[in-house]
Design a protein around this nucleic acid. Structure first.
Lengths: 140, 140
DNA sequence: CAGCATCCACCTTGATACTG
DNA sequence: CAGTATCAAGGTGGATGCTG
C-alpha cells in the first residue's frame, strides 16, 4: 500500500537506529501514519499531556487546555477513549461528575511523546537556524 | 499559552517515565505540538521513511510514496527542507537530477518515529479490541 | 456540570494543465 | 526530469444555542 517495493528494497539494513528488529519499512510507515492520524490533530497531545499530570474532570480539562472548545474537547476525548488511551468514569451524582484519566496504554503513549519532545529539544536550535537560513535564501 | 497552570500544577513529578528531567509540562506540550504540526500531515512520515532507506530523486520518491501527487511531494519536501530534516542536492545536468536525503537531524527523527511505531506495535491488539468494544457499546 | 446539534469558514489536499 | 500555477472539493475546527 504505502511504499513501492522497487524503489526502496535495497539497503534495507542501513538504519543505524537501535531497536526496530523486525517488520518492513512499509509496516512501520503504516503504523506511524495510524498513530499520527489519531494524535496528530490539533488537541489530542495537549489533552494527553494534561491528563498525564493527574486525572481531570471535563471542565478542569477545558481550563487546562486553554483555547479548546467543548465541542473539540468532547470529540477529542471520545476518540482517545475509543482507542483505550483515556478512561471515562462517571460518578452519578447531581450535578454529574465525569473523570478522565490516562489508561496504561495512554501512559505508555505519553512516554513516547516525551521522546518526541526530547528530539525537538535536542534539535530546536538546529531547526531554528535552518529555518531562518531557508527563509533568508528564498526571500531573495 | 498551552496549559493553564492552576489545573496542572500539583503532582508535577507523577510521571513514571524514564527521562524527561527538566522542562515544564507546558514546554513539552508545545514542543510536541510543534513536531506534530510539522510531520503530522498526510505525507511527511512516508517521505521520511522512504528517504531513511536511502537517498532518492524526485520521481523515485514519487514512486516510493505511492499515491502522492507532485504538488504534495513538492510542498512536503520544501517543508522538511526548511527545517533541515531533508537535504536537497541539485546536479546541474541535462535533464536535471535532484537528490533528496535525510540530514543527521532527519535521521534522528526517523529513530524517534521508530519508537512511535514500536508503541503502536506493542499496543495494536489492545487498541483494536478497545475500539471494537467501544463501537459495540455505542451502536447499542 | 457535562455535554449534543447545527451551521459555517477556512485550510488542506487533490486534479489538472503548463514550464525550464 | 523536476517542478509551478490554478481551481475545485472535502474535512477540520470554531461559534453558537440548547439539554439532562
Amino acid at each position: 500500500m504505502i511504499i513501492d517495493s522497487d524503489a526502496v528494497r535495497q539497503q534495507e539494513g542501513s538504519s543505524k537506529c537501535a531497536g526496530s528488529p523486525e517488520g518492513t519499512a512499509q509496516d512501520r510507515t503504516a503504523l506511524v501514519r495510524g498513530i499520527l492520524s489519531r494524535i496528530g490533530d490539533k488537541w489530542s497531545v495537549m489533552v494527553i499531556c494534561s491528563l498525564g499530570v493527574r486525572p481531570l474532570r471535563f471542565n478542569e480539562l477545558r481550563r487546562a487546555v486553554s483555547g479548546i472548545t467543548q465541542r473539540m474537547l468532547t470529540s477529542t476525548l471520545r476518540a482517545l477513549e475509543r482507542d483505550g488511551i483515556v478512561s471515562r468514569t462517571v460518578h452519578p451524582t447531581t450535578p454529574p461528575a465525569v473523570e478522565y484519566a490516562l489508561t496504561d496504554v495512554g501512559h505508555d503513549l505519553q512516554c513516547v511523546l516525551y521522546s518526541l519532545a526530547t528530539w525537538a529539544d535536542d534539535h530546536a536550535d538546529t531547526i531554528h537556524t535552518a529555518r531562518a537560513r531557508y527563509d533568508e535564501r528564498t526571500r531573495a
